[in-house]
C-alpha cells in the first residue's frame, strides 16, 4: 500500500505547535475534519478511541515516529494523515525518543489487512535514514507530500 493511497493531502500539518500527545492527536483529527475526511459528529468519538488505544501502550515505534490509530465504523476506507513536529512530542516511546513524525490512521473494523499494510509501508520507508531525516525537516505540507510521492516511487528504498 502506498502513502498516496491513505494519506489525505489536505490534512497534512507541519506547523503543529503542541507539546503533549493528546494535543497532537486532537490537532491531527481536526485536520482530517477540516479536510472533510471525517464527520463533525464522529470527530470526538474518534479522538477518544485513539487516546484510549494509547493508554494500552504507546504507538511510538522508535526513530521519532508514532502511529496513533484506531478502528472506527464511520470510515469505509483507511483514512490517514501526517504531522511533523519540529520540537517533538513526548510520546512514551519504547526507545525514549521524542516523536517528530506522526502518521494517524483510522481504519474500517473489517479491514485489518489494509491497516497492517499501511503500518508495513510506513515502517519500511522510515527505516531509510534519508527519507526519515528529510521528512522530519519538512516545513510545509507540500514538502511532505512530495517526499511521500517520492517514497511511493521507490526513490528511497
Amino acid at each position: 500500500m502506498k502513502f498516496v493511497d491513505f494519506v489525505s493531502r489536505e490534512a497534512i500539518r507541519t506547523t503543529i505547535d503542541v507539546d503533549d500527545k493528546e494535543q497532537v492527536i486532537r490537532a491531527m483529527a481536526s485536520a482530517l475534519l477540516e479536510a472533510g475526511r471525517i464527520s463533525e459528529e464522529q470527530h470526538e468519538g474518534i479522538v477518544e478511541a485513539i487516546l484510549k488505544r494509547e493508554e494500552l501502550g504507546s504507538t511510538g515505534i522508535g526513530r521519532g515516529v508514532a502511529v496513533p490509530h484506531t478502528k472506527h465504523p464511520s470510515v469505509d476506507e483507511l483514512v490517514g494523515t501526517v504531522a511533523v513536529s519540529e520540537n517533538g512530542v513526548d510520546f512514551d516511546s519504547l526507545d525514549g525518543e521524542k516523536v517528530h513524525l506522526l502518521f494517524l490512521l483510522i481504519s474500517p473494523p473489517d479491514r485489518p489487512g489494509d491497516h497492517l499494510r499501511a503500518l508495513e509501508n510506513i515502517s519500511r520507508q522510515l527505516r531509510d535514514d534519508t527519507f526519515c531525516k528529510f521528512l522530519k525537516q519538512s516545513r510545509t505540507p507540500e514538502d511532505v507530500w512530495q517526499l511521500l510521492e517520492e517514497a511511493d516511487n521507490n526513490q528511497f528504498v
Binding site: 515516529v65 519504547l94 489487512g113 508495513e120 515502517s123
Partner: peptide
Amino acid sequence: KSILHVLTLGAS
C-alpha cells in the same frame, strides 16, 4: 528489539 523493524515484516 525494534518495533519499527518488526512492523516492516507486515506479518498477517
